[in-house]
Design a protein around this nucleic acid. Sequence first.
DNA 1: ATACTTAAATAGAATTATTCTAATTTTAAT
DNA 2: ATTAAAATTAGAATAATTCTATTTAAGTAT
Lengths: 137, 137
Amino acid sequence: MEKLKKTGLKQTPQRMAILNHLDGNKSHPSAEDIYRAISPKFPSMSFATVYNTLESLKDHGLIKELTIESGKKRFDPDISEHHHLICVECKKIFDLPHEIRLHQKAMASAGIMKGFKILGTQINIYGVCPECSRASH
Amino acid sequence: MEKLKKTGLKQTPQRMAILNHLDGNKSHPSAEDIYRAISPKFPSMSFATVYNTLESLKDHGLIKELTIESGKKRFDPDISEHHHLICVECKKIFDLPHEIRLHQKAMASAGIMKGFKILGTQINIYGVCPECSRASH
DNA sequence: ATACTTAAATAGAATTATTCTAATTTTAAT
DNA sequence: ATTAAAATTAGAATAATTCTATTTAAGTAT
């Protein structure tokens, strides 16, 4: 949790708890998931704190915000390049290795991306996982 | 607008107006955008109708739902394979040609996608467009 | 250690997008 | 014209997020 120091953000207990909860977490939790997980230890913690913290952790590059479901933000402490495979039924989100390559040069040559400062890419693959396929048939 | 007939959905005026508004529309409108555009002609139209209609058009493959911004659904009548370039400042969404190839075989070989019935992929590239870059500096 | 400055946390209201419910109306088939 | 099923409506309900004003605490300087 030395990462926090580098950002210049203050080391508050709530913030450390959130960061700690996220560390190594592969569940792609929503703000509410995080709130529920941590609030037992911090019964006074407000929802706004969770949102504010996630926002600043994101701004400082410690986590990524995922746009996978419209209607709900999800957060990922794994900031390495990787993509997501989502089951539209059970909503489980699986990490995919970064074996997908973007032909950025090809796209740039199309001229559309000229002048665009690229910040990040999200590749979401939607489907039905084996378990749900089995269940529904 | 013969597409509606094929789906078996009933041809209501509201539905046709929505479909008509979407036809050829490259603006990736939200439900509210669509409501605002159409309600002058149908002052009695309810928001629920917009949502219901979009849902059934989606279910019948006439439009796609985009998950680009968390907090807001967007809809695209262009159901061909293509991706999106989003300016995180002005929120404009640009279409990208499908020159991005997924190495599906490579991924499948990783075993993770085994048994997954793939429904669709969304590739969202986030950045700052030339105009906003200029404005902010 | 103490005081100070500023960032962060808090409670709760407000906002936004979406979904739900129950009643009414319309479509399309007979 | 009748009818059954599907769609529309109004408005309430829900869910997620953001905002506002106030209080508290972190980190720095004294």
